[in-house]
Design a protein around this nucleic acid. Structure first.
Length: 112
DNA sequence: GCGGTGACTGACA
DNA sequence: CTGTCAGCCACCG
């Protein structure tokens, strides 16, 4: 990653705890990109960093943003299942599993 | 510079 | 419940 924006996106995604998920727009605004959901999507698509928990990124409606026949889709849901996040009829229960940034994270990253 | 294109989103029918 | 639509904005040819 090169830019400071990508750095912030990376930090925010890494901050998602195991067993929780976040939407693209949520991470984008958290990273300071008010309408940067496209950037977040492009970032994880191009980077494919194995150290990045990209599988915890899903759409706001609870569904993964990928076609069901893609290989990435299956690795994503299997990783989610391994963390205890079950898909109910193809989507995640956002009420239960959506990550809400706690005070520790915000205070630790005041620049966000 | 210009137009098409997304691993998006919220609103509306 | 399933579409469809208009904003959205960095990237690429």
């Amino acid at each position: 990653m090169n830019s400071a924006q990508e750095q912030r996106i990376s930090v925010c995604i890494s901050a998602i705890p195991s067993g929780k998920v976040a939407s693209y727009g949520q991470i984008a605004s958290l990273a300071g990109l008010r309408r940067g959901h496209r950037q977040v999507a492009r970032f994880i698509r191009t980077q494919q960093d194995p150290d990045l928990p990209w599988h915890r990124l899903i759409r706001a409606d609870g569904k993964p943003g990928l076609p069901e026949d893609s290989r990435t889709y299956h690795t994503q849901i299997s990783r989610l299942k391994a963390e205890g996040i079950l898909l109910h009829k193809g989507r995640v229960d956002m009420q239960r599993f959506q990550w809400q940034p706690d005070l520790d994270f915000i205070l630790f990253h005041p620049e966000l």
